[in-house]
Simulated assay, not measured.
Amino acid sequence: MKQAFILRGLPGSGKTHYAYALADELVAGDETQFIICSTDDYFHNEQGEYHFEKFRLPEYHNLNLARFINALAEGIPLVIADNTNIKRWEFVAYTSAAQAMGYQVKEVIVGEVKDKSMQHLYAKRNTHGVALRTISKMAYMFEW
């Protein structure tokens, strides 16, 4: 059975960790059997350093969606979208594409969105330097 997972959650909530754990559980981490599509990947330079550039976000989101759709078209058994997906419109194209290609789709909210103490933890542990203020704003805007 082909599966697509749409991860949602605040920066630092553990989405990427969850994605790799899911791949381990469902396909024993066999890299030929899964792909994790994250817009964050596009912000890494050749040395592997992360440099966020807000003006590139729309471009990189489009590239990530294209990568996701290409993975579906290739029939990769497990395709995971690893983005914050705060608003529903941010991930509806992922869901629609996966359903159209015959994938079973599951939306997973990783972490506690509204818990203020968890937001503080996420601000401390996210690897991209997203400030607590931004995380709290994202939590406020989160659509269920």
Rank of each mutant, 00 (worst) to 15 (best):
M1Q: 12
M1E: 13
K2C: 05
Q3G: 00
A4E: 07
F5T: 05
I6R: 06
I6W: 08
L7K: 08
L7A: 02
R8E: 02
L10F: 06
L10M: 09
G12M: 01
G12A: 02
G12H: 10
K15L: 09
K15V: 12
T16K: 03
T16I: 07
T16N: 09
Y18F: 15
A19Q: 08
Y20L: 11
A23I: 04
A23Q: 09
A23E: 01
D24F: 02
L26I: 03
L26M: 11
L26Y: 03
V27P: 12
A28G: 08
G29I: 06
G29D: 01
D30M: 10
Q33Y: 05
Q33M: 10
I35C: 13
I35Y: 07
I36W: 01
I36T: 04
C37Y: 01
S38W: 03
S38G: 09
D41N: 13
Y42H: 07
H44M: 10
H44L: 13
N45L: 02
E46C: 04
Q47I: 00
Y50S: 09
Y50R: 09
K54G: 12
F55G: 00
L57Q: 12
L57S: 11
P58C: 10
H61R: 15
N64R: 05
R67A: 14
F68P: 03
I69S: 01
I69T: 12
N70L: 11
N70M: 10
L72Q: 06
L72P: 03
G75T: 13
P77H: 01
P77D: 05
L78R: 00
L78K: 02
V79R: 00
N83L: 09
T84F: 06
N85D: 09
N85E: 08
I86K: 04
K87I: 09
V92K: 14
Y94V: 06
Y94E: 04
T95K: 14
S96Y: 11
A97K: 07
A97F: 04
A98V: 10
Q99D: 06
Q99R: 12
V105M: 04
K106Q: 15
E107G: 10
V108K: 11
I109A: 09
G111C: 10
G111Y: 00
E112I: 02
S117C: 03
M118G: 00
M118W: 02
Q119F: 03
Q119V: 07
H120Y: 04
L121W: 08
L121F: 11
Y122R: 04
Y122V: 06
A123E: 07
K124Y: 05
K124N: 08
N126C: 12
N126V: 02
N126M: 04
N126H: 03
T127N: 13
T127P: 00
T127A: 14
H128Y: 13
V130E: 01
A131F: 11
L132A: 02
T134P: 06
T134V: 11
I135V: 08
S136T: 10
S136C: 10
S136E: 12
K137G: 11
M138Y: 07
M138F: 14
M138L: 15
W144C: 08
